[in-house]
Write a protein that binds this DNA or RNA. Sequence first.
DNA 1: GATCGACTGGGTCAGGCGACCAAGACGTCT
DNA 2: AGACGTCTTGGTCGCCTGACCCAGTCGATC
Lengths: 212, 212
Amino acid sequence: MARLSSADRRAVLVRAALRVIDRDGVYRATTRAIVAEAEMSLASFHYVFRSRDEMLGELFAFVVRREEEATLAALSSSVSIRQAVRSGLQAYFDLLAAHPEREQALQELIQYALRTPELAALPGAQYRRYVHSAQTMLEHGAELTGVRWAIPIEQLSGVLVAFTDGLTMSWLANRDDSAAAALMEFAADAIAAQSVPARSIPASDPPREQPQ
Amino acid sequence: MARLSSADRRAVLVRAALRVIDRDGVYRATTRAIVAEAEMSLASFHYVFRSRDEMLGELFAFVVRREEEATLAALSSSVSIRQAVRSGLQAYFDLLAAHPEREQALQELIQYALRTPELAALPGAQYRRYVHSAQTMLEHGAELTGVRWAIPIEQLSGVLVAFTDGLTMSWLANRDDSAAAALMEFAADAIAAQSVPARSIPASDPPREQPQ
DNA sequence: GATCGACTGGGTCAGGCGACCAAGACGTCT
DNA sequence: AGACGTCTTGGTCGCCTGACCCAGTCGATC
């Protein structure tokens, strides 16, 4: 094995671990399986990571970052807000359908983190990031299509995330593409129904805050 | 340990395993942990189950049956269909909030089954049962409150299940009760919006107009 | 009360696990 | 060239796992 800095080796191991988890599941991602995937010795693992859980914590952070970037890149220009929401959902679904093992791995990682005291706080933080990403997309979409939201944006973001979670769960369980499409249509309708035409140009509009 | 028939011992072990999984997770539900919980010897386990996976298959079937009974018992009499859907969601949420470890265990079991070739078909079947339960509730609720559904009932059932999945995921991750309530309000609105007044009583009655 | 099949449980096996150590290899700076 | 700190590695430790064996116990039946 070539000589690597600790930081580089950590990154290599995290990516190898992710491949093992995608393929075989969190449970089978043992230190030995990971170093075999990365083609390095077992001792190298514990040279750069104090423990397997420390590596999983870094892996979790990596996955969250990657997921966040992917969702934010899905902003498309659409004429109507319904179409914008619908194509945003489609972009997510395409990602899910192309890499189901990746989403499944993510679900397993969340479960694992919830069971591990040192990592138990991570899923909550990850969820807040998702909601925040959803909020950004909804705000951006509304701005681009000239509407504003009739209900608090935080609430609507939660709804959107719930829809994607439900979409993920159901599709992973039964792989029914048409049922998924129907769900996305429904979600786009339900969310777009909460939009009203923007009254004025945002800059000079006074009432910014909107209590519950 | 008292003498038990194989069938009884299997049932005792499945329930003990379920307690261990609720408390510690699927991963830590080893044969030794299970027999300790059930207060019997390790050999008794392999006397009635050929392997740990065989026991988990039986456990999965047990959980699905229990879950199904719980959801179907939640039918309440309401004046409006929106209220019926809302209270149905609330009944599910109360169950979730009272026994979060049970829902978490269920999610873990689904993940485990998906990773185990012999059990991989079970989550899909379980999901279809859920959708079927949701359909029964929606049909029953519509009948009780004098409405019919404007879109195919199969599609709407899928939406309802997706909402409960999304609700489960988000609440397990951040335990935010008010966000959950907001999501349920939204879901009740969105689903009730798909109802229209029933025009007639199906069986033999002549067509009769029934406003609202 | 003898027999026989069903049931019980202590003990053991090989294998996989996370973690660790001590010795060697390498690059770099003096 | 020599010395030093960083990196690499094979080997090993104690522990836990699922599975299994076999001697022993129990209770129904004859």
